Amino acid sequence: MKVAVALLLCALCFVGLDAQCPEANALYDLEGTKLCARLYAQSNIYYDQSCQGDYLDIYPNDDVPTIAWRWNNRASALVVSRLCNLTVWSRIRKEGTKRKFSPGIQYRLKDVQKGLFGNWDNSISGYYCTC
């Protein structure tokens, strides 16, 4: 019984460790191909718990004026690879508000202002990534 409780507590200690955002210089897909950026469906006020849930890999020179319906207005965190830039739009066909993200980690898009009263959480509808 004590062993089972100890194992459960150890397992709970490691929950969330995989959720930590990858470093910008270590952004690769599952096959080892270098990415330009990665969008994440979930973020958290605690940075070590951001970059959770589903993710969308973006490759160098990807130009997507209309993001797939499953990802439209869904990104809450992102990472842009070293030597790359990600430009996003708030509306499909590269319309609406535009923002350029430089290399690095954006743990919470809710913290990135869009206009006077908005933010970029769940607001990306198109993108262009260059490296």
Score class of each variant (00 low, 15 high):
residue 33 T to C: 05
residue 60 P to A: 07
residue 90 S to Y: 01
residue 87 T to F: 05
residue 14 F to K: 14
residue 115 G to F: 00
residue 89 W to Y: 09
residue 15 V to T: 13
residue 16 G to M: 06
residue 106 Q to L: 02
residue 43 S to A: 11
residue 42 Q to A: 10
residue 17 L to D: 12
residue 94 K to W: 09
residue 51 C to H: 04
residue 92 I to E: 15
residue 103 P to L: 02
residue 48 D to R: 09
residue 48 D to P: 15
residue 31 E to R: 05
residue 95 E to R: 06
residue 81 S to I: 05
residue 22 P to E: 08
residue 34 K to E: 13
residue 34 K to H: 03
residue 76 S to H: 04
residue 78 L to S: 02
residue 25 N to T: 04
residue 73 N to L: 07
residue 51 C to G: 12
residue 64 V to R: 06
residue 112 V to P: 00
residue 89 W to G: 13
residue 48 D to K: 09
residue 91 R to S: 12
residue 111 D to N: 00
residue 49 Q to R: 11
residue 105 I to Y: 02
residue 112 V to Y: 00
residue 103 P to Y: 03
residue 13 C to R: 15
residue 32 G to C: 05
residue 42 Q to P: 14
residue 104 G to T: 07
residue 67 I to C: 08
residue 104 G to E: 02
residue 36 C to F: 03
residue 57 D to F: 04
residue 20 Q to K: 09
residue 46 Y to H: 13
residue 67 I to M: 11
residue 63 D to N: 14
residue 72 N to A: 13
residue 79 V to N: 06
residue 60 P to G: 13
residue 115 G to T: 04
residue 112 V to L: 01
residue 17 L to K: 10
residue 21 C to A: 08
residue 82 R to F: 03
residue 42 Q to V: 08
residue 60 P to Y: 07
residue 78 L to K: 00
residue 30 L to F: 05
residue 55 Y to E: 12
residue 83 L to A: 06
residue 13 C to V: 11
residue 75 A to G: 05
residue 106 Q to W: 00
residue 96 G to H: 03
residue 109 L to V: 00
residue 107 Y to I: 03
residue 25 N to A: 10
residue 31 E to I: 02
residue 57 D to M: 06
residue 102 S to Y: 05
residue 69 W to P: 10
residue 61 N to Y: 06
residue 11 A to C: 14
residue 28 Y to Q: 06
residue 98 K to T: 15
residue 31 E to F: 02
residue 42 Q to L: 10
residue 84 C to W: 04
residue 64 V to C: 07
residue 50 S to L: 03
residue 113 Q to D: 00
residue 105 I to S: 11
residue 26 A to M: 06
residue 109 L to Y: 00
residue 39 L to T: 03
residue 49 Q to V: 12
residue 53 G to Q: 10
residue 42 Q to D: 14
residue 99 R to K: 15
residue 41 A to D: 15
residue 62 D to L: 04
residue 96 G to P: 09
residue 106 Q to T: 02
residue 32 G to F: 01
residue 116 L to N: 11
residue 18 D to G: 15
residue 38 R to V: 04
residue 20 Q to I: 15
residue 49 Q to D: 14
